[in-house]
């Protein structure tokens, strides 16, 4: 830390998001700091407690290029930075918080970018909300509502994707997979297994199962695993519990995606004590 920064304790361990000053601790990302302060940054592939991924790009923010610490005599930078200032794009979930960062988050322009990215996720897969049992509990769907998305905008890709119904209690419907890798990470980092992976390249990337047959039934996935429950869309579902909660009373019927996004945190170990 330079002597200059010490004279300026306000910027020492705070970042500014949309004009609001937010404290952070060393090692935190912009997302960590924002969520801890109750500031919602839209996200799909992020879950606190799992290694940040940075793939969905819903959490894109703009960071003003000039850092305060190198120009801290310039008081103008302490004020809200001008909208046309040079900035760089970053994923909030992977970008470390650095003292003095001036961050744009909840702006019409960024939300428009996020809406387009959400539309990309919709048209890439086969998301038929009316016939999907995850409807109302689906974060992708809730995100679309949150961002004011009214249609897919782009032509549908109509990709052929495999359904795996082999497991007695868990269903894998790749039509709905958005490649967020939450299940991949949850299985590795929390369940202590390694049930899922992504194979293939580009638009052919797809979720695969780590078993001899490639089928879920031959994997060691269990209903009690976090990986069986973490899917933000309807790609991994617990069988025979589809319609227990009626439409209209589901998570996102009752809550904004931002409320849920601020709440969801995984403790480093959530497995049962009797294991």
């Amino acid at each position: 830390m330079s002597a200059d920064t010490k004279q300026n304790p306000i910027t020492q361990n705070t970042i500014t998001i949309d004009g609001q000053e937010i404290p952070f601790q060393a090692g935190q990302t912009i997302m960590d700091a924002a969520l801890a302060a109750g500031v919602y940054i839209p996200h799909l592939c992020h879950r606190q407690g799992l290694t940040p991924h940075g793939s969905c790009k819903l959490c894109v923010v703009d960071i003003a290029s000039r850092s305060v610490s190198s120009h801290n005599s310039d008081r103008r930078l302490q004020a809200k930075f001008p909208a046309d200032a040079d900035s760089r794009s970053a994923s909030a979930c992977t970008m470390p918080a650095v003292a003095g960062q001036q961050i744009s988050n909840n702006t019409p322009a960024l939300n428009e970018v996020r809406k387009t990215i959400t539309q990309m996720l919709f048209i890439e897969g086969n998301h038929i909300c009316p016939s999907c049992e995850k409807s109302g509990d689906c974060t992708l769907q809730a995100m679309a509502y949150h961002l004011g998305m009214l249609d897919g905008h782009f032509p549908q890709f109509f990709q052929r994707r495999e359904v795996d119904a082999s497991h007695p209690t868990i269903m894998l419907d790749r039509d709905r997979c958005i490649l967020c890798e939450l299940c991949v990470r949850a299985s590795r980092e929390v369940d202590g297994k390694n049930v899922f992976a992504i194979a293939g390249r580009g638009i052919n990337a797809h979720l695969i199962v780590n078993s001899a047959s490639g089928k879920l039934v031959d994997s060691d996935l269990e209903t009690s695993d976090l990986a069986a429950h973490i899917c933000p869309v309807g790609a991994i579902l617990i069988k025979e519990h589809g319609y227990e909660v009626p439409i209209g009373q589901r998570t996102f019927d009752l809550h904004q995606v931002s409320e849920i996004g601020l709440e969801k945190t995984i403790l480093t170990k959530v497995r049962q004590p009797d294991e």
């Binding site: 793939s55 996720l121 890439e124 490649l179 390249r201 580009g202 638009i203 990337a205």
Partner: peptide, 12 residues
Amino acid sequence: HESCGFCTPCRV
């Protein structure tokens, strides 16, 4: 053809 498929903006 060469996009790795990791992030949404590039993959799609």
